[in-house]
Design a protein around this nucleic acid. Structure first.
Length: 91
DNA sequence: TATCTGACGATAG
DNA sequence: CCTATCGCCAGAT
């Protein structure tokens, strides 16, 4: 691993996430090798559509404000408890 | 190279 | 619980 694009690293991490497992942007950024780049992670999910973006939530447990219903629906379908716009039992 | 944007994080009030 | 502000980073123009 020399210097894979940030987006590529993020995509790889998300593709490795098991169903029913939710992670925060900061976690993804750290796993991708770019700790602190939580904001940049959100930008990647915005550009890339080949990743389970619904499994990525904010540190507060809040799902995507851009597709709350969609994310909630998918998370529940995978066994994740969602309350309102927040994921239950994330940390 | 500079500037702006954004699906964030944490702290303060 | 909510809003506001600062700090952070990568990508686009």
């Amino acid at each position: 691993m020399t210097d894979d694009s940030f987006a590529a690293a993020v995509v790889a991490v998300l593709r490795a996430l098991p169903a029913g497992h939710v992670v925060t942007y900061g976690e993804v950024a750290a796993e991708a090798g770019h700790p602190g780049a939580a904001r940049a992670v959100g930008n990647v999910l915005r550009s890339v559509d080949d990743v389970p973006w619904w499994r990525v939530v904010a540190s507060t447990g809040r799902v995507n404000p851009n597709a709350v219903a969609e994310a909630t629906r998918r998370l529940r379908a995978e066994g994740v408890e969602v309350r309102g716009e927040r994921v239950v039992s994330t940390r």
